[in-house]
Design a protein around this nucleic acid. Structure first.
Lengths: 211, 211
DNA sequence: ACCGGGGTGTTACCTCGGGTAACATCGTCG
DNA sequence: CGACGATGTTACCCGAGGTAACACCCCGGT
């Protein structure tokens, strides 16, 4: 059996384990699921990052392509945005564990930076950036705004999506509406509430927090 | 020397190490920095999470109090939002390593869920939720929108802030503007660009991504 | 028939980090 | 003095990532 098919089998096993145990699954566990032992995994993937990387690439391509397609859809802008949001939420809804793996950066990377966005999400952020740059007239600040918004929107959907996945406070459709409304400036447009006394929360005296 | 002051010293040492080495700093390293050995750390904090927890609480209180205060500021809504954004960005700018620790959830938590938001950020999200609920008239969907937006906005600022910290594409003020503009629906309001051919990116044939 | 290479697999080991057990010391209070 | 509560130590365990060394199996070439 040549290399590639075997790789696929191993990735399938890893997929199963992660679907069952979450992204923290150990190499031993994955090897066991595949009915083999660690060194083989390492032969195929180099190290854990290699495995995870291969795994994420498989799934990323799907999600990324879907988002990309949604971004290019010939719709009214609001509809297009909703379509993108729905695409993402549908993706994480379908295989939560796998998408957690995709969407949550690994703690390693000690030399590098502590990016908030995992590679897969960074790619999505770039797609959004490109789409904004090429489709929306933002004047001189175009590049800066597009990039900041790409990251920001991605992070927004990540956090909100995670919350939604876990507590399922509403249907996907409603969630899409809520997020689109936010991006549509509904926060800005809404009226003030008749200001009561605003008791936000019990405020402890702010400890100095060291120096 | 009674317990508390010693704890503070140890936390200070931990702080120093993390400021220097980042959130991945080992217990050994922290102990060494404090001039002692591991067991003492464990006596005081139980386990790593305990240490990290104590550390984050110290700093969280500062950031959280600042954000809370910003949220309660008697300003025009847009100004208030900008004030909050600026507060957060100023916070992470001041002590990047420490705030990375605060803002990036630890990989552990195997039994629990894969929250995108670290505890400190979840608290901020809750503050935002409360502020929106109590200050903005959103009709029947109030609770859902406020909570979704709380998470979403927090995630947005987290991701965008991280990016800004690392690549410093502009001044803090400009970044605040960019994010506030996003929340203010500038994406929705801007005109379409004269649609060229939209060459988004080299699109590889979407691999089936397994089944 | 033989050998070599590329695949399969194994056991046993290393390192490092979190976490613990057991033991020794110092100062203070009754 | 003795006990207690803090200080500290060395030495160890465990699990996870990662590697070394070895063995098998098949297939194709000479």
């Amino acid at each position: 059996m040549s290399r590639e098919p075997r790789r696929e089998q191993l990735l399938n096993a890893a997929d199963r384990v992660i679907q069952r145990e979450g992204p923290g699954a150990s190499m031993n566990a994955i090897a066991a699921e595949a009915g083999i032992t660690k060194p083989i995994l390492y032969r195929h993937f180099g190290d854990r990052n290699g495995l995870i990387g291969a795994l994420t690439e498989r799934h990323t391509s799907g999600l990324l392509a879907a988002v990309r397609a949604a971004l290019a859809e010939p719709l009214e802008r609001r509809d297009r945005v909703e379509h993108v949001l729905d695409t993402y939420l549908a993706g994480i809804e379908a295989r939560p564990q796998v998408y957690r793996l995709l969407t949550h950066p690994e703690p390693g990377d000690p030399g590098g930076a502590g990016n908030a966005l995992a590679p897969a999400l960074r790619q999505i952020a770039e797609e959004i950036t490109r789409a904004v740059q090429s489709q929306v007239d933002l004047g001189a600040d175009r590049d800066l705004l597009a990039e900041a918004w790409g990251r920001g929107i991605t992070g927004m959907v990540l956090a909100a999506g995670d919350w939604w996945l876990e507590s399922r406070p509403c249907s996907r459709t409603r969630m899409v509406q809520a997020l689109a409304d936010l991006l549509w400036g509904r926060l800005a447009a809404a009226a003030d509430l008749p200001t009561a006394v605003l008791p936000t929360a019990p405020v402890e005296p702010p400890a100095p927090a060291a120096g």
